[in-house]
């Protein structure tokens, strides 16, 4: 996790893992992970820099999309909900993080142009100029992602992230200063537009689960990102004062979603299978097949036979879905 000051680019917190005091491998700086949808704002910022072609309400086609290029396998991005949504306004395509619409938009603008935006946002790592990079096949560290979002959060002014202000002698005389540097990487207008779109992500999009934690008038902007099977779960968000990047995953690239677990309602009176209507009902995880099959009397499905109870089984929700309500 990385937290910075949006205006000065000063790093305020950097946590490398569950054991924050561990002095070795620091994931916030050293881990390079696929960023998933976190790169999408660069695509939309590139688009919104051309107001004659794109505005926040320009219809974008979220129909099935196939990208063929010589020397690379065909690329056919799917949406998270496995559906296509037809024509959607540009801001909705970002708020809902639609992959097909975004891939179409990105290839329409041109991968090279989008990568130029990524560089202007402050990412120095060379990203490969493939269409799949658009949807976040590129790997970055949380600190690099923080630099990218910092430039957006600061209204288009890029400031190199700093963790040290100055080095002083024992008497406090400064030996070396790391001065605040700003560089105008983007005109203010397109950055205002992308910020409004990213506020939409929190207000009505994939990060709306945050609304239950944050006051509405704070105007938080953000973007979620996940990779297949929740191997990587990202969130980048900012307000006027602070920017935070969070990455969650396993070092060995294991899926965070555990398929071997099911969540089952248990009636604590009988310790049998109940449902949410039972008094004091608990939703507990069970290893696949080990939950009680017999129903408690409080379960509302009348006359249910033991063999059909599997309909109440649902896949364990990941922490990600619990927070963001996806």
């Amino acid at each position: 996790m990385v937290v910075t000051d949006t205006q000065s680019g000063e790093v305020q917190a950097l946590v490398g893992g569950r054991d924050a005091r561990y002095r070795g491998y620091n994931r916030a700086v050293d881990a390079a992970r696929p960023v998933g949808s976190l790169l999408k704002p660069a695509i939309y910022l590139t688009a919104l820099s051309e107001p004659a072609r794109y505005t926040l309400i320009t219809p974008i086609d979220d129909g099935p999309f196939l990208w063929k290029s010589r020397g690379a396998p065909d690329w056919q991005p799917q949406n998270y909900d496995k559906k296509f949504h037809g024509m959607v306004p540009l801001r909705v395509a970002l708020a809902q993080s639609y992959n097909a619409a975004t891939a179409r938009l990105g290839t329409e603008i041109g991968v090279e142009k989008v990568l130029a935006t990524v560089r202007k946002l402050g990412v120095e790592r060379e990203l490969r100029p493939f269409a799949s990079t658009l949807l976040g096949a590129a790997e970055m560290s949380p600190l690099e992602v923080a630099q990218l979002y910092q430039t957006i959060a600061a209204g288009g002014f890029r400031s190199p992230l700093r963790a040290i202000r100055e080095v002083t002698t024992q008497e406090g005389r400064p030996l070396q200063r790391y001065a605040l540097k700003v560089e105008q990487a983007f005109a203010p207008e397109p950055v205002i537009l992308i910020t409004a779109a990213l506020q939409g992500v929190v207000r009505e999009g994939t990060a709306q689960g945050l609304k239950s934690f944050l006051p509405a008038d704070i105007g938080a902007a953000g973007k979620t990102g996940t990779t297949d099977d929740q191997r990587d779960a990202w969130f980048a968000g900012f307000t006027g004062d602070h920017l935070a990047i969070v990455w969650i995953g396993y070092d060995d690239n294991r899926a965070a979603q555990t398929d071997g677990i099911e969540q089952v309602w248990i009636d604590p009176q009988t310790n049998l299978r109940g449902d949410s209507q039972c008094a004091g009902a608990l939703e507990l995880p069970f290893m696949q097949g080990s939950a009680p099959r017999e129903r408690s009397p409080c379960a509302t499905v009348a006359g249910a036979v033991v063999d059909t109870v599997d309909t109440t089984v649902k896949k364990a929700k990941s922490w990600w879905e619990r927070v963001f309500g996806r």
Binding site: D5, T6, Q7, S8, E10, R165, E166, P174, R177, A179, L180, G240, D241
Partner: peptide, 17 residues
């Protein structure tokens, strides 16, 4: 000048806008 800049940076941490 470096001292002047450092004071202004400190002030900007208080009132960044």
């Amino acid at each position: 000048l470096p001292t002047a800049a450092a004071s202004l940076e400190r002030a900007l941490r208080i009132e960044p806008r």
